[in-house]
Design a protein around this nucleic acid. Sequence first.
DNA 1: TATAGGGCTTAGG
DNA 2: GCCTAAGCCCTAT
Length: 116
Amino acid sequence: MPPEPTSNDTQDPRRSAVYLVLAQVPHGHVVSYGQVAAMAGLGRAARWVGRLLARLPDDSGLPWHRVIAASGRLSLPEGSASGQEQRARLRAEGIGIHNGKVDMRRHGWHLPEHSG
DNA sequence: TATAGGGCTTAGG
DNA sequence: GCCTAAGCCCTAT
């Protein structure tokens, strides 16, 4: 069953879930693909999230740049338009990048489920 | 409709 | 830090 041309993304709840999670990421914080995937209920669909972000339109208004690898590294190459964009935006939010890596210990966004 | 290949990843040795 | 194996969906033919 092919996707209907009448809708864009909100058709699939999975995609919508990722968008919602992504929109929940606070300013100055970052999350990993697997984290977003898990939060969206996708589980191990980390790569799928990455692929989804790659297809995200510029007018999505979503902080896709706040999504990085679990290791804190930026998968996007510095030579890539999105790569520079991500680094630029992260730095613009006050997120320091060292050797192409972000300090997940400080900027790693974690849900306050443990009351702290 | 079915088949084949790939991706902005993650975890273990 | 590098290599290998695994899980999920999409895209092209």
